[in-house]
Amino acid sequence: MTTLMSAPPAQKAPKAEGGLLDLVLRARELSILGALVVLVAVTAIVNPRFLYAQGVEDIFLNASILVLLAVGQTLVVITRNIDLSVGSVVGLVAFITGKYVSGDDRSVVMAILIGLAVGALCGLVNGLLVSFCGVPALVVTLGTLYVIQGIGYYIAQGDQINAADVPQSLLDLGSGGVLGLPYLPLIAVLVMAAVGYYLRAYPSGREFYAIGSSPEAARLAGVPIRRRVLTAYVVSGLLAGLAGVLWLARFGTVVADAAGGWELKVVSAVVVGGVAIVGGVGTVYGAALGALLLTTIGSVLVVLKVNSFWQDALTGLLLLLAISVDRLLALRMDRVLRKRSAHHVS
């Protein structure tokens, strides 16, 4: 009788631990959402024009490209890696697709496919070097950042793509919409939802978290670590390629170093959004909220006529704060789980 009564708690323990982790993640995402609401409300009080329809639309349009990059970066960071080449990939793809569509009777669909292919190829190179060659991700992606930049400068030869040379059908993708909703945010939301659902609902998606939580345990459990890490980099490159095409559609005028420095913005958005830099924890939804928060901060500073220097300072401060919170939460969860394990053993 005693054995039968003590069995259920032991079976429920893993669920309780998973529930604790889900609760922490939800708390992080809700705190970001709350900070976003407070920021918007305070700014609207100071300057009511901030919430005019055009202003709100501009925020979502500007955040969309960063959200796409953050979703791809999330996959990489969850596996305990990083991709610093995404900004360079965006610039390269934007210029290559701009060159392509500047010709006569160029297909916009083909331009998008070219952008996706270039981005996927860059991700494939990163993934092969990291997963199969064992080179540290920081070294690989820092190197490919400069290589891709160099290729972009070589192709550009000092030229730039002008909006007048870009087909209106492609420019409409960056400024148009359907049923009153802009295309760019819709694309970002669809991609975010698809990747988020895959990570949560499919066993192969959960394997990304297993790799980040404990690579050795994941290996012993039969998880194809190299294949999953390679997949993460290819998806990150693919989304960077898509972001490059959308960059061209959004801004029209493109130079060789478009999106230069954006790799740090992307990493900041991901970490501020609750994705642990040490891997294994976080969601694409939190990363998207982090991207939206950083974009909103930039818009708020412009509206309040604050020096743009403070945007970088605030981004750095939020990054340090997020990493510190991650560390404190990790220590707290470790203590809680140890107490629960000791309780069940006793």
Results as ranks from 00 to 15, higher is better:
41 A>Q: 01
13 A>V: 07
31 S>P: 01
24 V>H: 04
4 L>R: 12
25 L>S: 10
59 I>M: 06
53 A>W: 12
26 R>A: 09
47 N>F: 08
25 L>R: 13
32 I>P: 06
23 L>D: 03
53 A>L: 02
7 A>G: 03
37 V>S: 11
7 A>K: 10
50 F>H: 01
22 D>G: 04
29 E>S: 01
58 D>G: 07
35 A>L: 04
63 A>S: 14
67 V>I: 13
58 D>W: 01
55 G>E: 09
63 A>K: 07
29 E>W: 00
13 A>K: 06
5 M>C: 04
66 L>V: 15
63 A>W: 11
49 R>T: 04
21 L>S: 04
21 L>A: 05
14 P>T: 01
33 L>P: 00
43 T>Q: 09
23 L>F: 07
12 K>A: 12
30 L>S: 06
69 L>A: 10
28 R>F: 06
44 A>H: 06
7 A>W: 14
31 S>V: 03
43 T>F: 13
69 L>V: 10
37 V>W: 15
42 V>W: 05
58 D>L: 07
68 L>D: 14
57 E>G: 01
68 L>C: 13
33 L>A: 09
37 V>T: 11
36 L>G: 13
12 K>R: 11
35 A>N: 03
29 E>T: 08
66 L>S: 15
15 K>R: 13
25 L>P: 03
69 L>S: 11
25 L>Y: 03
38 V>T: 09
47 N>W: 06
58 D>T: 13
22 D>P: 00
51 L>D: 01
13 A>R: 03
11 Q>W: 05
63 A>V: 09
3 T>M: 11
50 F>A: 11
32 I>L: 15
66 L>K: 15
43 T>Y: 14
57 E>N: 11
11 Q>T: 06
31 S>H: 04
35 A>R: 00
54 Q>E: 14
63 A>I: 08
38 V>N: 02
65 I>V: 13
29 E>G: 02
14 P>C: 03
21 L>W: 04
68 L>A: 15
56 V>A: 03
10 A>P: 05
3 T>E: 13
60 F>M: 14
64 S>R: 14
25 L>T: 06
61 L>Y: 00
21 L>Y: 07
46 V>I: 07
49 R>Y: 00
13 A>M: 12
8 P>H: 05
68 L>R: 13
35 A>D: 01
56 V>F: 03
26 R>Q: 15
38 V>K: 02
50 F>Y: 05
24 V>E: 08
4 L>Y: 08
9 P>M: 05
24 V>Y: 07
50 F>E: 00
23 L>A: 15
64 S>D: 04
18 G>H: 12
36 L>H: 02
13 A>Q: 07
23 L>R: 14
21 L>C: 01
54 Q>S: 13
56 V>Y: 02
32 I>N: 05
34 G>F: 09
28 R>V: 10
54 Q>H: 14
61 L>G: 00
67 V>G: 11
47 N>H: 13
11 Q>N: 14
69 L>N: 12
30 L>K: 08
45 I>S: 03
33 L>R: 01
28 R>E: 13
15 K>P: 00
48 P>H: 04
57 E>W: 08
66 L>P: 08
34 G>M: 07
68 L>V: 06
29 E>H: 01
45 I>A: 07
35 A>F: 05
12 K>L: 15
13 A>I: 09
26 R>G: 06
29 E>K: 01
57 E>T: 03
5 M>N: 10
10 A>T: 14
15 K>L: 11
15 K>Y: 10
7 A>N: 11
65 I>Q: 07
61 L>T: 00
28 R>H: 09
44 A>S: 14
12 K>E: 10
